[in-house]
Design a protein around this nucleic acid. Sequence first.
RNA 1: GGAGAGAUGGCCGAGAGGUCGAAGGCGCCUGACUCGAAAUCAGGUGUGGGCAUCGCUCACCGGGGGUUCGAAUCCCUCUCUCUCCGCCA
Length: 456
Amino acid sequence: MAAAAVAAAAVLALRRRRRPGRTSRPGARVARGGVMLDLKYVVEHFDEVAARLGTRGGNVDVQPLRDLADRRRALVTERDNLRRDQKAVSDGFRQPGVTPERREELRAKSKAMGERIAAAETGVGQVEARISDILMNTPNLPQPSTPVGTSADDNVVVRTVGEPRRLDFQAKEHWEIGEALGILDFEAARKVSGARFVLYRDAGARLERALASFMLDLHVSRGYREVLPPYVVLRDCMVGTGQLPKFFEEAYVATDDLFLIPTAEVPVTNIHREEMLDAARLPINYVAYSACFRREAGSHGKDVKGMTRVHQFQKVELVKFATPEASYEEHEKLVADAEEVLKRLDLPYRVVSLCSGDLGFSASKCYDIEVWLPGQAAYREISSCSNFEDFQARRASIRYRPAPGEKPRFVHTLNGSGVAIGRTIIALLENCQQADGSVVIPPALRPYMGGIEVIR
RNA sequence: GGAGAGAUGGCCGAGAGGUCGAAGGCGCCUGACUCGAAAUCAGGUGUGGGCAUCGCUCACCGGGGGUUCGAAUCCCUCUCUCUCCGCCA
């Protein structure tokens, strides 16, 4: 299972496409070859890879890779042989007693060879660019334990925790409650930023801040290191975690080479981009609070009311770097850590294992945590906890040395919301609403609310 | 924003057109010594690609481009880091 990842760290082709003069790659030392290991795996396990990718649905076509791999191999061999020969010719210059005539002869010969090398080189570049293009746009392989299915309907409920609350009055939806209390101001948000934004006021703003502190404190107490990352990242980061090149439409572009983060996963995972991690330090656990910016392209008409789906929301994110041996276990722990938030807030939820067809691009396995919303009378996603295995690590070149003297290996990366704050507020408003429209703050949160027990 | 200096393997650090994948050191591995360890001594130890199943070969010295028969080394350019000055939350 180790070699499960498909897409490659082939930042090469991508980099080539970048406008000159706008590159930025501090301390760049990408293991370029790492790309090809990946290709090798796909080609050598072609049927298996195609089958596993097939369970995702969509139109993933890795078929051309077989031919391309063959062509690449032939071109590389040719180029390398030419280079070796040219080296041999060049050595002639250092022989004792070379006459000027001899030098001129060698010079002409070597120069001609140089031209052939350049041609072969171009060929290799073109083939590798095509390979990279395919691999970079190929999603991760689902883990064997990921249920096979085509849509969210095929997701599997793993466990349900807490009873959906029974209210003895007609449950309202969060926007009704929030606007009536004056803590959610959609009108002001629209004026300031347009559709799909929210502005919190008074106890609402306080609630956002309280939840962030509460979640951060909780996770720090359970072994995560707190970080506060930049909200704007370089293109390479977006490529590393898998948002680019394929999901450009989803991202807010700050400048040509800078992007607003869609999740803290991006900057936090990329903390260790192009690094060799100390095996003794693994697993590394980070918790980060950040705003998240999403275009929500293609979700027109979905969740248009309220703040279920907005262009900016805040989230506390958990990120792990683990050895391949430990990653499955760490994944379970990650989910448990996210669940703990809901348990302490006394919110009913269930954990769902996403089926192959519903899996995100980079994930090999994913659990969603869905919180019960009385207003909508439905379970809605509040956290998504994924294991990416070495998919992101390959793209971002994040490795570790298992033991002194051993070969470097790619780490496994994992992350999950712990949890989305906006949706937690939705859940609190709907679950803790009372007949008179007031909302009771769960005891665990009161210390962070400056004494507020009920928002009325 | 102005002026300089720099970017080399896991880390530190030499190298100034070919004999450099790169001295030396640290770290690590193996062996010797030891009851064992430390110290010491000897040897080994970068990452990928291609062919091949002793092994051979190619690439990689921040990124990109150029000069040259040949570039870690020369030129251009970009990025980043550091020092000084200015400005500023």
